[in-house]
Amino acid sequence: MTRTFTVRAEPEAVAGYLRDFARTEEWDPGTVSTTRLGDDPVGVGTRWHNVSKFLGSTTELTYELTREEPGRLVFVGRNDTATSTDDISLVAGGTPGTTEITYRAHVEFNGLAKLAAPVAKVAFEKLGNEVERNLTRVLDGKRTDPGA
């Protein structure tokens, strides 16, 4: 699933907000809870325990921030049945004070869970529309304070 959209917030504020994966509770419609593991400042290697509902089932993954660089964040979540990669690219939008977000979510199923892939693809596309709508709502107007 890939979505590209623009929000009314500076790239630094958007990156500061999105780098804390616990905030998925505010914009990911499938997330039930996300809890950071450990007390160290958020950075590459920080991990979160995520509980989500998808296609009527509850699933738990451990996500890790695997890449953080200007304009890009990558989170990888794993459990016994799937590996989920959220790759988020951020660039200044065409209008001052805006950010163009390209959000790519890829799930690779393991073992028997691979049988669910065709059904999951359709559901992920619908979920992508909701994620775009929710992220736009949450991020529009975020100030330049990266912790905002």
Rank of each mutant, 00 (worst) to 15 (best):
T81E: 13
K142F: 07
P70W: 03
G56T: 13
T2N: 14
K114E: 04
V32Y: 00
R67S: 15
G16F: 08
F75W: 06
E25P: 01
E100F: 01
E108W: 06
L61V: 09
T144R: 11
T85R: 13
S84K: 01
V74Q: 05
T24S: 11
P11G: 13
L90K: 03
Y63G: 02
T4A: 12
T62D: 15
R19Y: 09
A22H: 01
W48Q: 08
T85W: 08
V119P: 03
G94Y: 01
G30N: 15
R8Y: 15
L18Q: 04
R72Q: 03
H49N: 15
V32D: 07
G16P: 02
G147F: 08
T62G: 14
T99M: 12
K121F: 10
D39G: 13
A9R: 04
R19E: 10
A105L: 12
N110T: 12
E25D: 10
E12H: 04
K53A: 05
G71K: 07
A22F: 00
L90T: 03
R8V: 12
N110E: 10
P29I: 09
K121I: 05
P41A: 13
A13C: 09
R104N: 05
R67T: 12
S57F: 11
R143Q: 07
T4I: 11
R8K: 15
E125D: 15
T59P: 04
R19F: 12
D39M: 10
L135N: 04
R137W: 05
W27S: 08
A113M: 13
R67C: 14
Y17H: 14
S89G: 04
P29T: 12
G16T: 03
N110I: 08
M1T: 12
R133Q: 08
V122N: 13
Y17A: 11
G128H: 08
L65Y: 02
F21H: 13
N79R: 09
R104F: 00
D20M: 04
R143D: 11
P146K: 01
G128N: 14
L112D: 13
D28E: 14
D87F: 09
R72W: 06
G93R: 05
R19I: 13
P146Y: 01
R78T: 15
E64V: 05
L115I: 00
D80W: 00
G30P: 03
R78L: 13
G93K: 05
V76Q: 02
T136L: 09
R23N: 15
V91R: 13
P146L: 01
G30E: 14
S84I: 05
P70S: 09
T85D: 01
H49V: 10
V7W: 06
P70F: 08
T58G: 01
